[in-house]
């Protein structure tokens, strides 16, 4: 019962470095046709053919959702990461053909909201750019508070401020500017929905403050995609497909399953959506659970693992896959 996503064959039509860390990539369909429209907050999974390795990284779509000619993503270079962002920055050229997934939205606007209050940290700005374009086109009311390390690293801040001077506030860490969160949350009209996307610390901070102030759980939305982390290599037996695979140091368990030619369901590849949840048949060792999906009890049970971000250390692991 894997829902899955269809793929789009695209060509890189533009690469725009924005600052020291962030570069924008633009895609058009290779067959000249139109891209699907999407809803603000959606992401696409970009396939990267990096030698023998196929990397599949999710990036928020930040182009105008109504623009069917071009998709845009912005990629922050992570020098300590496993290589996906470095591949995009160092290897991808204008004219390259790539494969991306249809848009998937795990961070959509609640269209019942009387007002959308958005809090962004760093590269977490990207889904909001598409959401703001959607709201501007449909007359939705919004307010954005965007924190970045410095003016130089505040991607798209100038553009956002120029287009929406009354709705956008920018905060620079290096100038000791900080969002006055308590005051901000306290002053919102009834029916406001709160959205936060950024580093884990920021998401936790905003959710905790909102809960303290009595915001309904349903009115607080957040998106945090984890990047899989490197770790010690380990061996896994896939019981259904009767294969034994090796998960490399810089490979995720999900990637290793895919590399062995076994089809496994996924959507976000970042520990959030639950689609890749896999049953554990047997194990001798310890799990390194890193997802947001399983609850503490499930993590302790040794019966489930989210192979997109979680790992294992020990002698044997047998999965129902």
């Amino acid at each position: 019962m894997s829902a899955g996503t269809d793929k789009l064959a695209v060509t890189v039509t533009n690469i725009v470095p924005l600052n020291d860390l962030v570069t924008r990539f633009e895609f058009q369909r290779s067959d000249g046709g139109e891209l699907p429209t999407f809803s603000g907050g959606a992401h696409t999974v970009v396939e990267m053919r990096d030698g023998d390795i196929t990397r599949l990284n999710p990036y928020s779509l930040m182009s105008d959702p109504m623009d069917q000619s071009t998709y845009a993503i912005s990629v922050r270079r992570d020098d300590a990461g496993r290589g996906g962002s470095l591949f995009m920055h160092n290897r991808v050229r204008v004219g390259d053909r790539m494969v991306i997934s249809y848009p998937v939205n795990l961070f959509s606007l609640d269209l019942r909201a009387r007002k959308h209050l958005m809090i962004a940290g760093g590269i977490g700005i990207t889904p909001f750019i598409a959401q703001i374009k959607q709201l501007a086109a449909t007359g939705g009311r919004f307010e954005l508070h965007y924190a970045a390390r410095s003016a130089a690293l505040a991607s798209y801040a100038d553009e956002l401020t120029a287009h929406h001077p009354n709705n956008v506030s920018i905060y620079h860490d290096d100038q000791a500017q900080a969002i006055d969160l308590v005051h901000l949350l306290d002053g919102q009209p009834l029916g406001t929905h709160l959205y936060v996307c950024g580093p884990k610390g920021m998401i936790d901070w905003v959710r905790a403050k909102a809960a303290d102030l009595g915001w309904p759980r349903e009115a607080v939305h957040y998106e945090e995609f984890l990047a899989p982390q490197s770790g010690k290599p380990f061996e896994v037996k896939l019981a259904l497909s009767n294969k034994v695979i090796e998960v490399g140091e810089h490979q995720s368990l999900l990637e290793a399953i895919e590399a062995a030619g076994v089809d496994a369901p996924y959507l976000c590849r970042g520990g959030a959506c639950g689609q890749c949840e896999t049953d554990v048949i047997g194990y001798d060792g310890k799990f390194i659970h890193r997802d947001h999906w399983l609850d503490d009890e499930e993590k302790a049970s040794g019966k489930k693992i989210m192979p997109c971000v979680s790992r294992f250390e020990g002698k044997t692991l047998v999965l129902d896959r």
């Binding site: 019962m1 829902a3 899955g4 996503t5 269809d6 699907p36 999407f38 249809y102 848009p103 998937v104 959507l267 959506c273 689609q275």
Partner: peptide
Amino acid sequence: VRALKFLLNIQQGSPA
């Protein structure tokens, strides 16, 4: 429960 999980994950371009 199973049907809802399936429906929530139906994606653009992949009707059921």
